[in-house]
Write a protein that binds this DNA or RNA. Structure first.
Lengths: 214, 214
DNA sequence: TAGATTGTTAATCGATTAACAATC
DNA sequence: TAGATTGTTAATCGATTAACAATC
């Protein structure tokens, strides 16, 4: 199941398709066309067909795509047909939020360990999990076959945590800290950088506007 | 200060430049070249020069860019030279995390009001702010001249909250809920969709790998 | 059969990169 | 002056969209 060189843009659309398809499945919709998908997701139908066609012929001409079948296929492509273990470092507000989201991530991703550098937090229970000290990270991650590491620590600590994850052998890192981290090239890093999102949003505000109707 | 049609990609790089420039300024670095920036941010220097040139001639040939001057310019472009008020709806884990981040967003964005639909949370204090009931959203947002709304509620409630923000006159919305929201076209929506980021990360994992050295 | 919709090729559009004259 | 680096034009690359034959 090897695929050609797929662009990042394509890969990032797959989870969007999946989410909508899951909604459709829940509503017992059997079939969906690229036009339906496009209307809902604000995408060009041709783009959707092209995206899917990179991975196989999932549709039927004249009919569209079988919802259940397409869900299975996309899950397979994204490797969500197996459980993927995740570890999180930084049990602060954001880290706790993500742990509790666990339900949300249910789509076969599971946070299976939480770590923190603050001794006061060690042993705290977050959504079934007990917060562990940093010293146990490498061993635990290896033992549990954790494949993705989530970083929710201050920017100054991000690189250090990333190094530990790398040492422990994770394959991907999701970094919420506002910092660029350096890792070996075979390890994939995705950023969730809230500040950048918010600052770029500011660009689109209307200039000035401090004067108001009183 | 009106600019030509700038692509989203360019706008999203500006905050990255800003962040690194701020670091340089703190280290008392006077001057930076597009090559320095590119090395650090993993971008092509030509791209950086081109990005900046959309907005003016900020550099000196043979020298580079003055760090302090460029910081001021980018802040102006992003409209961060004025305080931008932000309101947040959903005082759950994630909402609280973002409120406490307030320090981080200090770059002239300030969360000035927090709302929640849960009666038990009304009046709770989060980082100086008292959680208000949804009924007060429209009035408060108008009074405080809030320009950006942050949504951190469950997906099922996201559209309802967005509608309220729109009614109250915000100019931009930052949506953390895993749901697409519909708003009038003059209102800008940015998504911070953690699930999509994580699922697309899974794509890049190595297939299979459940068998391990034991 | 007529209508709908896919998969795919070709056309278009836009973004990134290279190259270089201008100049500090 | 020689070396460095910008701003900008031209070349390249890649992604999106249009179009349409195949076919359910």
């Amino acid at each position: 199941m090897k695929f050609p060189k797929i662009s990042e843009a394509v890969v990032r659309r797959l989870p969007m398709y999946l989410r909508f398809l899951n909604e459709l499945a829940k509503s017992d919709v059997q079939t969906v066309s690229s036009q339906d998908l496009g209307r809902r997701l604000d995408l060009n139908p041709a783009q959707i067909r092209k995206d899917l066609a990179y991975f196989g012929e999932f549709g039927k001409k004249g009919i569209g795509y079988d919802v259940g079948y397409l869900v299975e296929k996309i899950r397979g492509i994204l490797k969500l047909d197996q459980e993927i273990r995740v570890a999180l470092v930084g049990a602060g507000n954001l880290g706790q939020a993500l742990c509790n989201y666990n339900a949300y991530l249910k789509d076969n991703m599971r946070i299976s360990a939480v770590f923190d550098a603050n001794p006061n937090r060690i042993g705290d229970r977050i959504n079934q999990l007990s917060v562990q000290p940093m010293e146990e990270l490498v061993r635990t991650v290896r033992e549990q076959h954790v494949r993705i590491g989530i970083i929710t620590v201050p920017a100054t600590e991000a690189q250090r945590v990333a190094d530990q994850f790398v040492e422990a052998g994770v394959e991907g890192i999701m970094n919420f800290a506002p910092a660029i981290i350096k890792v070996p090239s075979q390890i994939r890093v995705h950023y969730a950088d809230f500040t950048i999102e918010l600052q770029s949003l500011a660009y689109y505000l209307n200039r000035g506007e401090t004067e108001e109707e009183e």
